[in-house]
Design a protein around this nucleic acid. Structure first.
Length: 426
RNA sequence: CGGAGCGUAGUGUAACGGCUAACAUGCCUGGUUUGGGACCAGGUGAUUCCGGGUUCGAAUCCCGGCGCUCCGACCA
């Protein structure tokens, strides 16, 4: 796309109402817009990143044999009362609203805005699960969650409205459940690796709540993190501080001496749910021996906005983001610097060529000063920056900078596609 | 929800209780420039968060609300 057509603009200064690095850079780059605390719009560039992340997650979920669906945000309280979770004392972050069927708005029937989807999914599946032959069922969605956080914080990392991938598994036996659970854990590690956080993201034992001994979190090392974990680098496993004690260390075979206390961001969480929701919503099946049984559930979440924010926290510099190719809104930033008209001609040709090759190119064709263009390019943080200027024209070479390592190379125009291909292979 | 700080053009800041709310940046015109937000001239842009109060006079002081940030608690 031509940058002159992009309606979003970059900002010179940090917004004063943000201190989190992710929010500062994303707002300055025109990726997001803040509506209110914990509520952010995704602008065109930000949405491109979000969609890239979504596509990666979707691929991995589909590879597990999961099927995508889309449940509603508006929730029938009856389903939640069945599990006891409509009560504000049980779940304190509900947003609730009212149906317009009373004497006035607030006298109408109460509705919930979904903060998770165990109840409605279990209730819906009553229509589709009858026999053990129908299991397993793995259903997932990308869906907006509403959580009335007491305190939104850390930019887009802890919002009140956010997009989440939530998958729910329904298994016939404990063994089947565990098998899928482990497959999903592996898929999660692949997802975090693919978005560029593989080196710093670790499976972490965490509280299982009332459903099981443990749940598993995926924690990305970052000083911006809200969680403290104890990491065993050799094993590539960690344990959350919330369950850290000598008994549990022993049980999980952690050597206390090898654990490092570090801050981390929870980018994913998977946990066993047992039969609690199936029982509450009467989701059952008839097993091979003719007896009625409840499926074992698991739930598996990734907050897309938080993941996007984590990528910025971990992979950016003070003057700009450093998107991994897999999630970058564009792979290439083609930038002309002011100069002879031939510069523009060559850049136009390159833009056509690269686009024809299937590369996503942001072409900065704006007639503004070199400093501004370079500063903007740093801020936007695309993986490859190609400069076309009088200087590069005279040398009959383009200047290509790889954002990840900040290295600049001279590449002949007719070798550019091959050069970029070779980089992508690595 | 407890504690602390803050709220002034699109953005970032300034202004002793006292003149027409200032400066930078952005944006618009024209000119000049062109490898790290270059320069000159002119212009545009504000219900000083909202509501009360004190005062001859309030962006400034007081009360109440709302909002934002941070620390803590919370995070099913």
């Amino acid at each position: 796309m031509r940058q002159s057509q992009l309606f979003t603009k970059t900002r010179r200064e940090d917004p004063k109402d943000e201190t989190a690095k992710n929010a500062k850079l994303l707002i300055r780059g025109g990726y997001i817009h803040k509506e209110m605390a914990g509520v952010y719009d995704y602008l065109p560039l930000g949405l491109m990143v979000l969609k890239k992340i979504e596509a990666i997650i979707r691929e991995e979920m589909n590879a597990l044999g999961a099927q995508e669906l889309l449940l509603t945000s508006l929730q029938n309280p009856a389903l939640w009362e069945a599990s006891g979770r409509f009560d504000d004392k049980q779940v304190d972050n509900w947003f609730k609203t009212h149906l317009h069927n009373g004497e006035n708005f607030h006298a109408g029937s109460e509705l919930g805005l979904a903060n998770t989807h165990e109840e409605p999914l279990a209730a819906m599946l009553v229509n589709h699960l009858h026999s053990y032959r129908d299991l397993p069922i793995y259903a997932y969605q990308f869906q907006t969650k509403f959580r009335n956080e007491l305190r939104a914080k850390s930019g887009i990392m802890r919002g009140r409205e956010f997009l989440m991938k939530d998958l729910y598994s329904f298994s016939r036996t404990e063994e089947d459940f565990r098998d899928f659970y482990e497959q999903c854990a592996e898929a999660y590690l692949r997802i975090f690796a693919r978005v560029g956080l593989g080196e710093v993201t670790f499976r972490t034992f965490a509280s299982g709540g009332s459903f099981g001994d443990f749940s598993d979190e995926f924690q990305t090392l970052s000083t911006a993190g809200e969680d403290i974990i104890y990491l065993d680098r050799e094993r590539g496993l960690a344990i959350n501080k919330e369950i850290y004690n000598d008994d549990i260390l022993k049980r999980l075979a952690f050597d206390k001496e090898k654990l490092a206390e570090v801050k981390a961001i929870e980018v994913g969480n998977i946990f066993p749910l047992g039969t609690r929701f199936a029982e509450a919503l009467n989701l059952h099946f008839i097993d091979e021996d003719g007896t009625k049984r409840f499926p074992l559930m698991g739930s598996y979440g990734i907050g897309l906005g938080r993941l996007l924010g984590t990528i910025v926290e971990v992979l950016s510099r003070d003057d700009g983001i450093c998107w991994p190719v897999a999630v970058a809104p564009f792979a290439v930033h083609l930038v002309t610097l002011p100069g002879a008209t031939e510069v523009r001609g060559l850049a136009d040709d390159l833009y056509q060529q690269l686009t024809k090759q299937g590369l996503a190119v942001l072409y900065d064709d704006r007639p503004v000063g070199a400093g501004e263009k370079l500063t903007d390019s740093d801020l936007l943080g695309l993986p490859y920056r190609i400069i076309v200027s009088d200087r590069t024209l005279a040398a009959n070479q383009l200047e290509v900078r790889v954002n990840a390592d900040q290295k600049t190379e001279a590449v002949a125009p007719d070798k550019l596609v091959a050069f970029l291909d070779s980089k992508q292979q690595k």
